[in-house]
Simulated scan of single mutants.
Amino acid sequence: MEASSGYKDYVAGLMAGVATVITGHPFDTVKVKLQKYNTEAGAVKYKNGLHCATRILQTEGVKGLYRGATSSFIGMAFESSLSFGIYSQTKRFLQGEIDGGKPQPHAIVPSAAFGGSIISFILCPSELVKCRMQVQGTDFMVPKSTRFSGPLECALKTVQEEGLTGMFRGGLATLLRESVGNAVFFSTYEYTRYFMHLQLKGASSESSQLIDVGVGIMSGGLGGIAFWSAVLPLDVAKTIIQTTPEKNHSRNPFSVLNLEIWT
């Protein structure tokens, strides 16, 4: 029973990761381009996300919005699977088999942070490749410093030029983003789900499955909003660190953010 439940946690996380890439990667591409080119001194300034997305569609078509999706599929599938699996297993270990009870912060926060810190080591290399692919493009507004034909070439050139440690550039920012972000996400998710179920406690059994789906969507959506509200600055720093061509560029996310504020 316990093993079966753990298996389902990992499979559910895997499916969630795949669905996230399919629906969210175009938005992520726009986000990364804005983080890269709207923070550099003298760089092109996209007016907003719509302007950036329009430029991509005009010069590269829909496939431009999915640039870097291969590495994102690999990273997000494993990341989401391990995140949900490790979190669920660790939470059970800390609080026991309590089902439907009031959320316990002493179990949720460390479980989520632990899961986030573990997956950051897997996520960092895949996100580095993803981001470096995403900042490319055929748009004349984008600098033509380096072009990669695919994620494999990007990874190989990174290792050749920067060594194996180059694949973990931005590791500290990724670790902080995932550990803090997951703690915020799962705390919001658990409390939202708990209080929504309390309000809908008297619902008929026929509609219980539909209610569970709705509660899951609302809880996950609010958790995602809370996640990015808490860690977006760290994500901006991570993108800058991972995509800069300068080998001696600071890898301290707080130094990078401080520099961006004062320049």
Rank of each mutant, 00 (worst) to 15 (best):
E153Y: 04
L57M: 09
E2Y: 10
S149A: 12
G17K: 05
T244K: 02
I74M: 11
T158P: 00
K201W: 07
A230Y: 00
D28A: 13
F186E: 10
S204H: 12
T54F: 09
S204Q: 11
L234D: 02
V30Q: 03
V32Q: 11
F168P: 00
H197N: 15
A155S: 11
S255N: 12
T188F: 07
E79Y: 15
D235Y: 10
A41H: 10
R132I: 00
T138P: 01
A41E: 13
C52S: 09
E97D: 15
K63S: 12
S120A: 15
G75T: 04
S111E: 04
R92N: 14
R193Y: 01
V180N: 04
L222V: 06
K47S: 10
K8H: 10
V62S: 08
G137C: 05
G115R: 00
C154F: 01
Y7D: 08
G115F: 02
V18W: 07
V159D: 02
T263W: 08
F114W: 06
V215S: 00
T59Y: 11
D28G: 12
V236N: 07
S111C: 03
G214M: 05
G171M: 12
E127T: 11
G223C: 04
Q199Y: 13
M141W: 10
V11P: 01
G116F: 03
T174H: 07
P26D: 03
Q160C: 08
G181Q: 06
L164A: 12
H197L: 14
S117N: 01
T192W: 02
F121E: 00
L234P: 03
K8F: 08
L65C: 05
S204P: 08
R147A: 11
A41V: 13
D28Q: 14
I118N: 05
S72I: 05
T174M: 15
E153I: 06
E153A: 09
G202L: 07
M218I: 15
V180F: 12
V184W: 02
N258R: 13
L65A: 06
A203L: 12
T29H: 11
T90V: 15
I22R: 00
F185Y: 15
S219Y: 01
G171K: 11
V231L: 04
F148Y: 15
P233H: 04
A53D: 02
Y10S: 00
I98M: 08
W228G: 08
S71Q: 06
L82S: 08
H25F: 09
Y66H: 05
M76K: 11
L156E: 11
S72C: 12
T243V: 04
I98T: 13
T244S: 15
I241M: 06
G166C: 04
A53F: 07
F121N: 05
I86L: 15
E178P: 02
K157F: 07
Q160A: 14
G116H: 03
H51I: 01
F93M: 11
D212W: 06
K31Q: 13
T243K: 04
E40Y: 08
A226K: 03
I119L: 10
P233S: 03
S219R: 02
A173G: 09
F195P: 03
R67Q: 09
Q95H: 08
L164I: 14
Y194R: 05
L128R: 14
Q95E: 15
V215H: 02
A237V: 05
Y87M: 08
T70Y: 09
V32G: 00
G116V: 03
M15R: 09
T263P: 05
Y66P: 04
Q58D: 11
A203W: 10
R251Y: 05
A173M: 03
A113N: 01
I56Y: 04
F227E: 06
N252T: 01
I119R: 05
